[in-house]
Design a protein around this nucleic acid. Structure first.
Lengths: 219, 219
DNA sequence: TCAGAACCGTAACGTACGGTACGGTCTTCT
DNA sequence: AGAAGACCGTACCGTACGTTACGGTTCTGA
């Protein structure tokens, strides 16, 4: 449950190793969990011996691949000064839109699938990594925004974690589980944008401070 | 995407076959996706030849197992007459509580894990079945309640599907994905009950008709 | 009682794949 | 230039497991 070692490991990779992990990632997206060491070696034009030397075993390669992908999505910090309702709304919509884009991407779906499978097989390495770099990373980035909104008198809540989880639910709804289960659910940019606006409005309706007449209703 | 064949197949099973599927289900919960045909045969005290004769191949056994479990959870219809705010609230809380109990159960987690893995491997049979008997079955059962609430003047929405999905998000939040990814998340009866009440109140705050002073706020 | 089907237990087969070994090639360092 | 190491390609090994085959036992129906 700690997110400490992902930076070092991703920094310590050579360009060649990154290329190999990119190949593994592409293969994972294309073929799902049944990617074989032979297939990775062929796709990356490297030998299996090298794979085993660098990553130990198949699980090590999988773990390195997930961490490599996780290290690629970096944070865009949100400025907390001059926060008003408009900028708070924009921030929340941005978070919602980004998150929907992530969970509906082929890469995220493939990674979550293999992590879910992995979690079902005793060792929960991949599950913890995906969770740490997905849902928990989102919470860490969003919480400061929520706190700032509360300090600015725009939001009202007693438990930031509960508020975050409500926002999470309003944004994701059934999208992720449906995609993971293979449902064809086209998440176009327009749909994502609309969902982000709706989720933000609903969240503000629930947690927005009652000072002032901003009570938009969802439809 | 149709839910037609699950009834017939489950009815056509002999007691012995049901016992075998129960054994497979228990094994699936205990050992995850790597249950072998040999293990199922041993656990069920039957021969592998019988397994292949009855279910065709491993995928057939998996499919039959998932359908068998799906056929076991039956519907408790909700009476739509004399609907007032109290009974609507109770119905929604009941749905929320039931759903949280389902998605946090070992059986559901194991089934969803294998279905997610399966969906990642081309054939999306299990994913469609789980989706059909889970999320879509819930929608079919809840929609009449929402419609009745609207006709009784208690709810306001233009799109029942959107309203349902919001309810779904408010109830499930991040619970299912965290459990699927192996997060230790103890869902006690008390926590489930509290979540059900909170989700219902939030849903009513968003979709409740504005006639009358019922605007409880979540904490 | 007897034939035949259903079924159990186990052995056997074939294959896929994780993991290892090895020869050949290229780079690097001295 | 020559030695050492990293790496590629491929062949190979061992095992796990899906699938099939078969002998023996129990059930069923005439």
């Amino acid at each position: 449950m700690q997110a400490s070692t992902d930076i070092e490991t991703s920094e310590a990779l050579t360009e060649r190793q990154k290329a190999v992990l990119d190949a593994a990632l592409r293969l994972l997206v294309e073929e799902g969990d049944q990617l074989t060491m032979t297939a990775v070696a062929r796709r990356a034009s490297c030998s299996k011996e090298t794979l085993y030397k660098w990553f130990g075993d198949r699980d090590g390669l999988l773990t390195a691949t997930v961490q490599w992908q996780a290290s690629k999505v970096r944070v865009v910090p949100v400025d907390r000064k001059g926060l008003d309702l408009a900028s708070l709304t924009a921030s929340l919509e941005r978070f919602a839109s980004d998150w929907l884009k992530v969970i509906s991407s082929d890469t995220s779906i493939a990674l979550n699938r293999v992590a879910v499978s992995h979690a079902g097989s005793g060792k929960d390495d991949l599950g913890a990594i995906v969770l740490e770099n997905g849902r928990f990373a989102l919470a860490r980035r969003l919480k400061p925004v929520l706190d700032a909104g509360q300090q600015a008198g725009l939001l009202e809540f007693s438990d930031a974690e509960a508020a975050f989880r409500t926002f999470f639910g309003l944004v994701a709804r059934d999208v992720q589980i449906r995609l993971l289960l293979g449902d064809r659910l086209e998440m176009t940019d327009a749909a994502i944008g609309g969902d982000a606006v709706r989720a933000t409005q609903q969240f503000l309706a629930l947690y927005g401070a009652k000072t002032g007449p901003q009570g938009p209703r969802a439809g």
